[in-house]
Write a protein that binds this DNA or RNA. Structure first.
Lengths: 245, 245
DNA sequence: TAGTCAATAGTTGTCCTACAACTAGTCTTA
DNA sequence: TAAGACTAGTTGTAGGACAACTATTGACTA
């Protein structure tokens, strides 16, 4: 099994590995939407793990909205189409999301500097004083076309210098992976915004209308890693959220 | 234990009952943010259930972002404050959400009619033909002040007449509860919108700016129950989403 | 004295087996 | 024909056991 966690050296739990693999198989259309997948006992023997582990993995997929577990009947693949796996509930980098949607991801750097943190940033990133932060202004591209403008502030107080340098050009998430501190959680706020200050170039919308995704990314230990404001151009991106009880 | 599910006669699973109760205790600040809650063994003895049940319940809370489970250490209350419990991930009625935020919820009915379904509605609600639907136009109030305008279409094809009548005035969710078909899942799309057609009265924004939450609610059996477009007035409501890996 | 390491108690992760509760059929019977 | 009993299969819960991990304590070392 080649799960994401494996690649990054992080010892993923057994449950996580199974969950990732079943997720992959579902997205690969091994079972049709609405179809019943193998029973827990069957899965536990083929994966050579206990039924408890399989159950926990399936529960995760149920939370993610991928399957429906019915007492006494079986586990069924939900028929929400391809929308869910790219939903906002799942924390993924912009590049990941864009390539999952079938486009070629890209980034156009406008600003990449190290400067003292502002008031807001000190608050959001829980910095003690005016620590230096890495500030980025970038355009997010899908198939070469700008879909969003991103203003990111990264907490570099506990990052090695070479990683910070790397971030000035490459993917922030990928760089964080190399030192095993990939964000595992983000709290996002969504707003509608009209502003002439946002964006640049001739691709920015004439009506100055944006959908703002304002979020703080957290590491596994609860430390804030990045505060980012991404302004999406309405109509060029679909925002989906799965809501469950 | 008096869980929501109990009230509605639905036999909630043991896991669900435990999960709801621990959630309630956490929101009631029984443990401070960051603090370690009781161990799984301890909880299993006090609740008189197996550790499996407690574990599953805690996993649910972890997925909701309420707690953090650390291998070999314990389960800790996350310190995201009061934001999370009212996040968009959790499916709740507008009224529920508003009262959780500490305001007095209200609804002002403008239109409540039964009419044939439109093309879009037939598609979203998976209707066979131009079945009649219940169409509502309402203003959502918090402490008597309008915060959003809601345009809802309800699939009444399998609903008893008296329930439909009830919906014309009372809460849609509450009415669905009485016949045990409360929605358990919703797929929502978020957009920024500028329009002069939306809303009414002197409380609508001068800049015609709205945040649109467009969603389809599904019942436990996967049947679409309601298609609703809710236009929030920017700044009067906070949209939070928890994103996890 | 400060730092390193081993031991240890406590906690979550996984395994095993068993049975209860529920579902969706098949078959029987009135 | 329709209602009801029966049954095989599946998920939900129980209990006990051990593995893997964490955080703390205390002994030992430089």
């Amino acid at each position: 099994m080649n799960t994401p966690a494996d690649q990054f050296g992080g010892r993923a739990s057994l449950t996580r590995q199974i969950s990732d693999d079943i997720r992959r198989r579902i997205l690969a259309k091994e079972w049709a939407p609405g179809e019943k997948i193998h029973s827990e006992s069957e899965l536990s023997t083929t994966y050579k793990v206990s039924r408890v582990t399989v159950r926990t993995a399936l529960k995760t997929l149920e939370y993610q909205g991928l399957v429906d577990i019915r007492h006494g009947s079986g586990t069924y693949v939900n028929n929400f189409g391809r929308s869910i796996p790219t939903g906002l509930n799942e924390l993924r980098s912009m590049s990941e999301t864009i390539s999952e949607l079938g486009y070629e991801p890209g980034m156009e750097y406008k600003v990449a500097t190290i400067r003292p943190a502002t008031e807001t940033e000190i608050d959001k990133l829980r910095l003690d004083n005016a620590d230096p932060v890495l500030y980025l202004e970038r355009a997010v591209l899908a198939d070469g076309k700008a879909v969003a403008f991103s203003y990111d502030t990264i907490n570099i107080s506990s990052l090695p210098e070479e990683v910070v340098e790397e971030m000035k050009q490459g993917s922030v998430f990928a760089s964080l992976d190399t030192i095993n501190s990939r964000p595992i959680r983000a709290l996002a706020e969504v707003d509608a915004v009209i502003s002439k200050e946002i964006g640049w170039g001739d691709e920015r919308p004439a009506n100055d209308l944006f959908l703002l995704l304002q979020q703080v990314h957290y590491a596994g230990d609860g430390e804030p890693l990045m505060y980012s404001k991404t302004y999406f151009m309405e109509g060029r991106f679909q925002f989906l959220i799965l809501r469950t009880r």
